[in-house]
């Protein structure tokens, strides 16, 4: 089963490799992974798509929680959520393809963001299936290059993954 795990990580050098290393060391799958700092510069948010049985997913979340740099974690697929992925695709736009690609981009609500005599570059966001469908539709025109961001996700409604603003990374006391 496909699962999306979102986590807040200490924004430290090496935190990402601890997560990636855990997956390779224990033989878990990573389908996609995306990470960037949050509004709190001490925290990064990482969204990871993985597959596995319920037992494996339970182990994955426990092992992730065990990493010292993981502050909080949420399995988005446990409840209603929104997932989005960004696609940038450079596609042949010479001859007949020029009109066809423009039409397809409009149908999928993509945007042409760069134009040359030969090529268009199209930007599209959506869930994975939509992006897959767009890529399939473009294929006859001649795809030059595909870039996908990996999934970002957020829970619907009041469910949220956050750390109290006031919480310091580490609090030390002196005598």
């Amino acid at each position: 089963m496909r699962h999306i795990i979102a986590m807040l990580l200490e924004n430290e050098a090496g935190a990402l490799s601890r997560v990636a290393g855990l997956f390779s060391a224990r033989g878990y799958n990573i389908e996609s992974l995306s990470v960037a700092p949050t509004e709190d510069p001490t925290l990064s948010r990482l969204t990871l798509v993985t597959t596995g049985s319920d037992e494996i997913i339970e182990q994955i979340t426990k092992q992730l929680n065990k990493l010292i740099d993981v502050v909080r974690l949420m399995e988005l697929t446990d409840g209603p959520h929104i997932e989005r992925e960004l696609l940038l695709v450079k596609v042949n736009a010479a001859g007949n393809a020029r009109e066809e690609v423009k039409r397809l981009a409009e149908i999928f609500r993509g945007r042409i963001i760069d134009v040359t005599d030969k090529n268009y570059t199209v930007e599209l966001t959506g869930d994975g299936e939509k992006l897959d469908a767009f890529i399939e539709a473009l294929r006859p025109s001649g795809i030059v290059e595909v870039v996908r961001s990996g999934v970002s996700g957020i829970a619907r409604g009041d469910r949220s993954l956050r750390v109290e603003k006031t919480s310091a990374r580490a609090t030390a006391t002196q005598d």
């Binding site: 200490e10 010292i68 740099d69 993981v70 502050v71 750390v163 919480s167 310091a168 990374r169 580490a170 609090t171 030390a172 006391t173 002196q174 005598d175």
Partner: peptide, 12 residues
């Protein structure tokens, strides 16, 4: 130099 007496970490 000052050695902390206690420490707490939000992630641990």
């Amino acid at each position: 130099y000052a050695y902390p007496k206690t420490i707490s970490m939000r992630s641990y």
